[in-house]
Design a protein around this nucleic acid. Structure first.
Lengths: 137, 137
DNA sequence: TGATTTAGTTAGTAATTACTAACTATATTT
DNA sequence: AAATATAGTTAGTAATTACTAACTAAATCA
């Protein structure tokens, strides 16, 4: 029987590979890792402005501005002027921009299905319970 | 009770976060994702030459050559001329270059320990058995 | 109301990452 | 032995990613 840390290493491998495959299947191979990270962070923060996004990513505002301009040009992101503060604009993902999150969901679903395919119902239930326990704070 | 794919999503999050933390602790924050990938691939292939590395990474030879030159300058990699074919050189990781793999091992160990801390011995054993089952081919 | 802060932008610069075309030197094929 | 193929390199180019300094316009503080 293997040690848990070896299994974690293998698990990490499987997940990275599945994400890569999903990225190909969603025709997102043209996006760099950095660009994916921008779109994921915008999704995570839920329509941040440029200043908030720059703070979270620990990048300068001009850097983020340039990146966002390119996303807008490529129709991954659009801006909505704020009513409360007319200096500020909220960043939104377009349908195309949301693909990134759908891609993640797809990869996770595929992994879950692969796991279920190798266990019976009782074992699956036990795995869910144990993982739920180790992942809670 | 949550669905397995939601748990997989959470698992993915936890692993990415732990790798990021480990990267900071190993003082590797100055390396880009692309650079990490080079060093991981050299480790995985075990002293490839530039042509092999370029093929696996699906990059041109000049691109890989330039990247390797920078790694050599920064003392992450060194070259060993081949005896069989004097045109060719094998790429080796220096101690500094091997840090990347130690960093991964460290992250996996930390995750495994965190999991063990939340389960009793019997549950840990069951988790190991179930994950072993889902991760085998 | 005037001074200061904040959100975003513009301009100029630099490192990284990637490419193709053309080259040298060694190895293999005919 | 000559022709071809392979390993690596050099040079020139381009997109991406990041920075600082300096700016405009709007909001807030004193």
């Amino acid at each position: 029987m293997k040690k848990l840390e070896e299994i974690v290493a293998k698990l990490s491998n499987v997940m990275v590979q599945m994400e890569d495959t999903a990225k190909d299947q969603f025709n997102l191979s043209n996006l760099t890792h950095t660009q994916m990270n921008y779109l994921e962070t915008i999704h995570m923060l839920g329509n941040p402005n440029i200043t908030e996004l720059a703070n979270i990513l620990k990048l300068s505002k001009p850097t983020v501005k340039v990146a966002i301009d390119k996303f807008i040009e490529k129709d991954f992101v659009f801006k909505v002027q704020s009513d409360e503060d007319r200096r500020s604009a909220h960043l939104h993902l377009t349908e195309k921009g949301k693909l990134i999150n759908q891609m993640h969901d797809f990869a996770h679903k595929r992994i879950a299905e692969s796991f279920k395919g190798k266990l019976n119902d009782h074992e699956t239930q036990t795995l869910i319970e144990l993982l739920n326990k180790v992942l809670c704070k």
